[in-house]
Simulated assay, not measured.
Amino acid sequence: MSKQCACKGIRRCLLCEDILNSIPLQKENENEKSELTSDIWYYCMLCGNKAYRENVSHDYHLDSSEFILINGVYVETNFISEEEENLLCQGIDQIPWVDSQSGRRKQDFGPKVNFKKKKIRIDTFQGFPAFSRFIIDRMKSVDKLADFLAVEMCNLEYVPSRGSAIDPHFDDFWLWGERLVTVNLLSHTCYTLSQKDSNVKVLVSLPRRCLCVLAADARYKWMHAIERHHVTSRRLGINIRELTEEFLENGSSWPVGNELLDKAKINFPTNSK
């Protein structure tokens, strides 16, 4: 029987669950059960570093003494306009998609990396799409990102029909730096932050057209995920990464980092699909 998806190992989507004669909503049911047994907290973007048991207004939080302190989450709503979102999506959909695990599709603009062997292939890196350059420029206006040097961009597509999701994980610590940046397009979703051997989950709301930054504790102490039941319609995520200090000036791998940063200034050819 031919495989219709890109899932490997324990990864699953609705396509391979159907091939394996699983109940198509098995993963969804697991998530719903997890929601019932988990200790759910809701991040407040106005407080900036706290999550509360109830998903209510910020004014209510001012009188609440029960919260989880979680440093390093930043969400800016309406980071781009609806017109800019349309232009981005049109540009993205002119570029071929590659099937990825857990029911997603992706477009990678960055080096090819073997994280286990710590090897980087630079020659295939052809820069970022020209239509996305304004995002990187606009990020400079965000205080937390004023010195951010973008070196990798990965566009990810999530759709309910494939059961798209991403399991709890840490992004690589060797190559990718502290700040993980995402621009959320087309629909609302949530990041689910969690820690190993804990039933606590912190839900970070990602409104349509927002910018989200995970750094500090939210980057290094909390894993992040997008659960299947939080994908209710097509969603595109533009994920942008920076380098660790090892690959920056005065770091031991600066020659490689310098070449990557030069490559990041090139406009990726997008004139064919």
Rank of each mutant, 00 (worst) to 15 (best):
L186C: 12
E30C: 00
C44F: 02
L156H: 03
N71G: 10
W41D: 02
P96V: 05
K265R: 14
F173R: 13
T124G: 04
I95R: 09
G163N: 02
S194E: 14
D59G: 04
V202G: 01
G251A: 04
I122A: 05
P255S: 10
V200N: 04
N71M: 05
T232N: 14
R234V: 11
N258F: 02
T244D: 04
L46S: 11
F148T: 12
R162S: 07
L87R: 15
D63V: 13
L149C: 11
D99G: 07
N155I: 15
L261Q: 11
T270N: 12
D123F: 09
I92K: 13
E249V: 14
T77W: 02
I80Y: 06
N21Y: 11
W97N: 05
Q195A: 02
K117S: 11
Y52D: 07
A165W: 03
P269R: 10
A150P: 02
V204R: 03
G257L: 00
G103K: 01
R11S: 06
K117V: 05
F170K: 11
V142L: 10
G91E: 13
F109R: 08
Q107G: 02
T124P: 01
M153K: 07
N29H: 14
P269S: 14
N71Y: 04
R11A: 09
S141E: 07
Q26D: 09
G48S: 11
F125T: 05
R219G: 00
V256N: 00
I238C: 14
V204L: 10
L14F: 07
F170V: 00
D172Q: 05
I80A: 12
C47T: 07
K117E: 12
S132G: 13
A215G: 02
F148L: 09
E30H: 01
I40W: 00
A146Y: 09
T37G: 07
R105I: 06
Y191L: 13
I68V: 15
S187D: 15
V181D: 05
S100K: 01
N199S: 12
D143N: 13
P160G: 08
R179E: 06
R219M: 06
N250M: 07
R235G: 06
D147Q: 11
D108S: 15
V200D: 04
A130K: 15
G177L: 00
S2K: 13
E152P: 09
K8T: 08
S194H: 01
C89I: 15
Y42Q: 01
